[in-house]
Amino acid sequence: MSKSLIIAHLFPELLNLYADKGNIQTLTQRLRWRGYSVEVRPVKATQSPELESYHLVLLGGGSDREQALVATELYKQRSEWRAAASSGLPILAVCGGYQLLGDFYQLPGGDKVQGLSILDMTTVPGEGRLIGNIAVESELCGSIVGFENHGGRTHHNHAPLGSVVSGYGNNGQDRQEGVHHWNIIGTYIHGPLLPKNPQLADFVLRSALTYADLPADLEPLDDRMELAAHQHEWARHTSKVQKTL
C-alpha cells in the first residue's frame, strides 16, 4: 500500500490537555497493525492548515486562554473549514475542540468566543464543572466509556454521539453526549477517548479511509485487552448489563 492516510493533529502546542496523544496512538497503531501506512501531521497555530490534503483532523482541548488563541486562528479560515466539513472531511473533536465547532462558546466571565459555525450548536457556562466517569450507548459503535471534565453546557440540533447511561454528557440535562453529523464526531469524552473504545476508533478509521479512497474493510484485531478494560469500566459505572460487543 503506497498511499498514506494523513491525520492532521491541530495545534498540538496549545491543545494538549486530556491526552490527545492516546487518541493518535490508538489510530496510528490500529492502522499499522493492519498494514496501512499513516502519517500524523502536527499543525501549529503559526501554520495555516491545508485542509485539502488531510484525511482526518483531530482537534483537542486546551485551557481557556489557549483555546481562545486557537479560536482566533481557526476563525480566519472558517469558510474553508465549513466547505471541507460539509464535503465529508472526517473530524474528531474533543472537549474544547468540540465546543469550537459550534457558533460560539461563552466564557464564565460572559465573553463569547466565536466558533467555526460548522454545527448548529452553542455552549454556555453553567454552575460548576461536570467531572467524572461517563458511560454512553451509541448507535455508531455500541457503547463508549471515558471521563468528562467540562464547565461548558452544550446544546445542538444534530444527532448526538450517544445517550448517557451514567455521567453528565453535553449539558447534564438532556442525557445526550456529543455530536455526530456528516463525518464529524464531537465529544466531551476523554480518558483518552479511543484506547478503551476500539469500535469507535475503527468507526473513525473507516470514515477516514473511505474519504481517502483507501480500502476501508478493516480486518478485525485481537481487542481482548481493550474490550476487557472497556467492560470493566462499564461495569464499575453502570448497573446496566451490556450488550455483547
Binding site: 491526552a19 466517569n133 471521563f147 476523554h190 480518558g191 483518552p192
Partner: peptide, 9 residues
C-alpha cells in the same frame, strides 16, 4: 486523581 488520562501523556 479520578482521571487517569495522564497515563497517556
Amino acid at each position: 486523581g479520578r482521571d487517569v488520562s495522564w497515563l497517556w501523556d
